[in-house]
């Protein structure tokens, strides 16, 4: 039982970070490998606010998300925008370049060591039920993840903004013709994606750690979630992350000698069976 619970919590954390990527990659069709860099930025902002400025945790996390979103907007306006029409390969190279810059910048400012990080008291500890140890922070993560999943699903599917965004992605020209400000829709979406990355990064320090190699260390996991879940699909990302978290934790527990091997096997099999992802809609282009 504890394994299932830990798996769910790990999966939820994966979801928190990678849902932002699902937004940029899936909805905007931009292969943003620098997503991990935004998550790292959120993580550093949160960690520094906690340790140096003494800001309470629950305030530091939204600030981290806001800072990531702001940086996201600046980069989108100046750089990303030029590459919307480019091939996936160009986007991959461009964002790997950004990753390298982010990694060495983090190295330069904060050093190579792990950032110290302490949770506030009310999120520490465990609740012991018969046959099940529930970490409070993990419970907290699962709660936030569920709220976000529902909120995002509602935002994309049922609001006017969501409709405008989907229209802008599917057919920018027609959308523009209908008076939708496509550029603005993209900027806002990118900000949303970056904010989610920052949020996930801030919430993830406790379980993933935080050091300058973060963007490359975990990017594979985020990509797997998006690729397996189907692009631009909140529900798919959620289910894929939970599955991945479960497989990862269970694999580490029952088959430690297989290591991370299991995850890659699952991913490749998934991609072969369902190239569009679990719940993918067929690509518009």
């Amino acid at each position: 039982m504890t394994i299932i619970f830990d798996g769910l919590a790990a999966g939820m954390l994966l979801f928190l970070i990678s849902v932002g990527l699902s937004v940029t990659l899936g909805l905007m069709n931009f292969v943003n490998l620098a997503h991990g860099a935004f998550a790292m930025l959120g993580g550093y902002v949160c960690a520094l606010l906690l340790s140096r400025a003494g800001v309470p945790f629950l305030l530091a996390v939204p600030i981290a998300a806001a800072v990531s979103a702001a940086v996201g907007v600046v980069l989108e306006r100046t750089l990303y925008r030029r590459l919307y029409g480019a091939s996936h390969l160009d986007q991959v190279l461009f964002s790997i370049g950004l990753n390298f810059m982010a990694i060495s910048a983090a190295h330069y400012f904060f050093g190579a060591q792990q950032q110290p990080f302490a949770l506030p008291d009310f999120l520490r500890g465990q609740i012991n039920l018969p046959g099940l140890d529930v970490g409070i922070y993990r419970l907290f993560l699962i709660g936030i993840g569920l709220i976000l999943a529902v909120g995002l699903q509602w935002l994309v599917s049922y609001t006017k903004f969501g409709a405008q965004l989907r229209a802008s992605v599917d057919n920018p020209r027609a959308a523009r013709g209908l008076g939708i400000n496509v550029g603005r829709a993209f900027t806002l979406t990118f900000a949303l994606g970056s904010a989610l990355a920052g949020l996930g990064g801030a919430l993830g320090i406790e379980m993933l750690g935080l050091d300058p190699s973060f963007p490359l260390k975990y990017i594979v996991y985020f990509l797997i979630v998006v690729a397996v879940g189907g692009s631009g699909n909140i529900k798919g990302s959620l289910i894929a992350s939970l599955m991945l978290g479960l497989v990862d934790i269970a694999g580490k527990y029952y088959l430690p000698q297989a290591g991370a091997f299991l995850i890659y096997v699952v991913m490749v099999i998934m991609l072969i069976v369902r190239p569009q992802g679990l719940f993918g809609r067929t690509a518009a282009k």
Binding site: L25, V31, S87, H88, L89, V92, V220, L223, I224, A227, S231, Q257, A258, G259, A260, F261, Y264, V265, M267, V268, L271, I272, P275, A283
Partner: peptide, 28 residues
């Protein structure tokens, strides 16, 4: 046979996945 299916994105992921699998295999 795995790589040539699907779109660019799938290819990126599958090639990456295959390489990571071999890395883990060699590691273990």
């Amino acid at each position: 046979f795995l790589v040539l299916r699907g779109s660019d994105l799938t290819r990126l992921m599958v090639t990456l996945g295959v390489a990571m699998m071999l890395f883990e295999a060699a590691n273990k």
